[in-house]
Design a protein around this nucleic acid. Structure first.
Lengths: 227, 227
DNA sequence: ATCAGTCCATGATAATTATCATGCAGACAT
DNA sequence: ATGTCTGCATGATAATTATCATGGACTGAT
């Protein structure tokens, strides 16, 4: 446990709740930490799935190039959300990409190790099921939520999402371009820009470049709910 | 193994691949089979999650009532797809409903049993992860696929989906109303009806009541792809 | 048999969104 | 410094989709 710095990792108790100290040591020595700069590609669609990857620090987006060549954003993930959600265990290759939106650090563990630990330690496996399940559930519920709204409501929903879930503040820098917001909510970049401008003109938010400040949270919530 | 009729179940090898005969017997004696008629509610949103449920026979829809009160269809499932996908293991209550679209039979096993088996038998747990993972992946990829298309393309995509994935034939009875199609693709019922009529007028499909016959599969595919 | 309810269907119109065009500002390489 | 690229912004217009209204067919309840 000397070269192994997992003790400080906030994910440890979450992830390794049911793993004995000796098992942790064994895994810990096999893990690799990787640092990424804002904008770096962490996983590229089509890459072979070798590692179980989770986010230790930072913010990432999961995206996929769809059949017609357009990029679509599936979700955003913070630490404590897993990055290796979809397709892991069920596919050989990633069918989505992961990109760092802020400087990020991942912790990579050989998938075979995780697999064999899960095969030996059923409690660990159950814990894993739960985490993967929760993460994918969130994505699906989010899709449903967004789908039923119209442009203006989707924008409001997204702003509230960043404020509440990602930054826990009504004042933050958008980590994504307007085009990426469009790819996330399934609209065009022009209309995203227009909606943001409208919200600004109505005095509901303040914008300067990437910086957003939500002034009338209640109004924004009403817009989000009333679609 | 006498009262236990799992041997004939096609799901057995899939599901219990890694489970010993004695373990199967133990579980098998605890399982309950339930039959449902077309239209019956199998799971109601908000129900407590007690059983691990899988579909042995039939066709079902997963749906969710969204915040504004509108019903949304998440996916359709055939046998071999699991029904207890989302929220199981991670939630206490279902956050979606399951309805039989055709006469269906489910096999219910106490979740605690499945959980404890997974805790003991890691291989079984891994198998479970894989299945759950694959099923949710499908749902997410489907959402992405549909989202990038416009009305006409979504209708074409859905028709091809039923023909290829559900009925394996270009001639079939739609198991859902036009309104439900709308809830599946995120459009209004009127526009679904209009699109179907347009496809009929263009000679691409034949319609009589719930019966659909795809005449020009190639044209339909092109419409689906070109959105 | 009648009534209420739902599904399918179509039209007219309004609302929403996409597309195309243009301009500006900043980043960056040469 | 110049040109090129990208992101942000706005307008004009076209395309798409929703909403509202109406009608016929059918089902089930009374």
């Amino acid at each position: 446990m000397d070269a192994c710095n997992c003790e400080g990792c906030e994910l440890r108790t979450l992830f390794f709740e049911n793993v004995s100290t000796s098992e942790i040591e064994a895994i810990c020595n096999l893990k690799t930490e990787r640092a990424f700069r804002k904008g770096d590609l962490i996983i590229s669609e089509g890459d072979e799935i070798r590692d179980f990857i989770y986010l230790k620090k930072g913010l990432v987006k999961l995206s996929k190039r769809s059949s017609n060549g357009k990029e679509q954003i599936i979700s955003f993930a913070l630490p404590l959300d897993f990055v290796s959600l979809l397709s892991i265990f069920s596919e050989e290759r990633y069918n989505y990409s992961v990109t760092a939106l802020e400087d990020s650090v991942t912790c990579n563990i050989s998938l075979n190790e995780v697999r064999s630990l899960a095969g030996i330690n059923g409690k660990f496996a159950l814990n894993l099921i739960q985490k993967v399940n929760k993460a994918t559930d969130k994505i699906i519920l989010n899709f449903l939520e967004v789908r039923q709204k119209r442009l203006y409501g989707r924008i409001a929903y997204m702003l509230l999402y960043f404020a509440e879930k990602i930054y826990k503040s009504n004042s933050f820098d958008l980590p994504v371009s307007r085009k990426e917001i469009a790819e996330y909510i399934g609209m065009t970049a022009e209309n995203v820009i227009r909606s943001l401008s409208d919200l600004r003109k109505d005095g509901i938010i303040r914008i300067s470049g990437p910086h957003i400040e939500i002034i009338h949270e209640e109004k924004l919530k009403r817009i989000s709910e009333l679609s």
